[in-house]
Design a protein around this nucleic acid. Structure first.
Ligand SMILES: [Mn+2]
Ligand SMILES: [Mn+2]
Ligand SMILES: [Mn+2]
Ligand SMILES: [Mn+2]
Lengths: 218, 218
DNA sequence: GTAATAAGTTAGAGAAATCTAACAAAATTT
DNA sequence: AAATTTTGTTAGATTTCTCTAACTTATTAC
């Protein structure tokens, strides 16, 4: 059994590896807001437990065992987020902080019931894939809205940044996952994009926003 | 903010006081499965935080502040149990261990939503009262089934022992809260009681069982 | 009312998770 | 290639929560 602290390290290792490929002590330290010497000693501990491959000055790597355990924690996190949105009617901007806590609950039956009630969902409310019961996760290849061309019609599939602030911004524009979006024009100067969707005929979105919206081409 | 450990001490103090009136170090130590010297030092700490009145060799007492905080944790516990049974379709014998963990979740909105979805319940699945938003709890006066007379018809209102084993036993006899039970006879020798209810015409219940069943007279 | 037992405290130590200060290695810049 | 900066490690201390051993106080038994 891993402690809550160890679980948070595993999850961070898994997430950073999925985002940037390689994980180093400095990045992990920044992500967890824990000083580097503390991270180093935890890496030694997780190495003892065969969850991490650790060698001084080398990039950090989860073992297969570590990947599986991390995947299962993320599974609990994302199932929880889905449950909170679908069954408890909380906003997608409110669920992350609660899921950060509930992901550590030890109770297979609790999460199996969640999964069942939700109808075995494949993605969470932010479009992130839910790892399977072996902790395995398959990422679909999406495009950033900022990489699309004028005239294309795309479907909003996922959001990269899941900060409450960003999600609340999307709420004000009535943007939801599954939304069909048409690219009307792109401003060369600042790469902002004007799109139309639903009742919105011409909504201007900054490049910063468009880089955080993942879409599927139709 | 109190730590998870502190919360568990507060809750135990509250529960023991409600069961037996007075709380002493030995009882608290037994309940929490923590050695007495550890309990003593935690009492000093909680006393510092104005949550417990502590004097050497005197009975332990929660302050008003301590009672409120304990009541609010128990509120979260019992709301959770109700949610797990009513909304997640888990058995009343399965929910306590999960609630023991979820009661420590920090998220007012999460528990308010639970309360709302449940329609502001007053009791949990075991018949225990749910403290209000100020941590206040009012116990109804129930009778033990073992104290009833032959010929009386009573309603099952609560169970005292909420161990999974006892609740599974009640399941095998199809006994639920709200059930109307008629006392048919009492065996003088061992104080076992024969009752009828639902489809059950004559079910013999040992005194040990009857002492754990709280009923309301009709 | 003394002896035995139970309950409670003090003292000291250990595990887990964190920190700061100082040093060492690696990468980057010039 | 030397200097500088970034990254990572070691050493030692701190906080929280726990324990055991030894001692003290209170209660119960005789
Ligand atoms: Mn999340
Ligand atoms: Mn998510
Ligand atoms: Mn319970
Ligand atoms: Mn209960």
């Amino acid at each position: 059994m891993n402690s809550l602290t160890e679980e948070n390290y595993l999850k961070a290792l898994f997430n950073i590896a999925n985002e940037t490929g390689e994980v180093n002590v400095a990045e992990l330290s920044k992500r967890l807001e824990i000083k580097m010497p503390t991270v180093t000693s935890m890496m030694k501990k997780l190495s003892e437990k065969k969850l991490v491959h650790y060698e001084s000055y080398k990039p950090l790597q989860l073992t297969d065992k570590g990947k599986k355990e991390a995947g299962l924690i993320i599974r609990k996190h994302r199932l929880t987020e889905m449950f909170l949105v679908d069954k408890m009617k909380l906003g997608w901007e409110d669920v992350h902080d609660i899921a950060e806590q509930i992901e550590h609950i030890q109770s297979p039956v609790f999460f199996e019931k969640m999964d069942e009630l939700l109808g075995y969902p494949k993605v969470d409310p932010h479009g992130s894939p839910i790892p399977d019961k072996n902790g395995k996760v398959v990422w679909k290849e999406y495009n950033k809205l900022s990489d699309c061309k004028v005239g294309e019609t795309v479907k909003l599939a996922a959001v990269i940044n899941t900060s409450s602030g960003f999600l609340k911004f999307l709420n004000t524009r009535e943007m939801r996952l599954g939304l069909k979006i048409k690219i009307k024009s792109i401003e060369a100067f600042d790469k902002s994009i004007t799109v139309s969707y639903g009742k919105h005929q011409a909504e201007a979105l900054s490049n910063i926003v468009c880089e955080r919206l993942l879409v599927e081409k139709q």
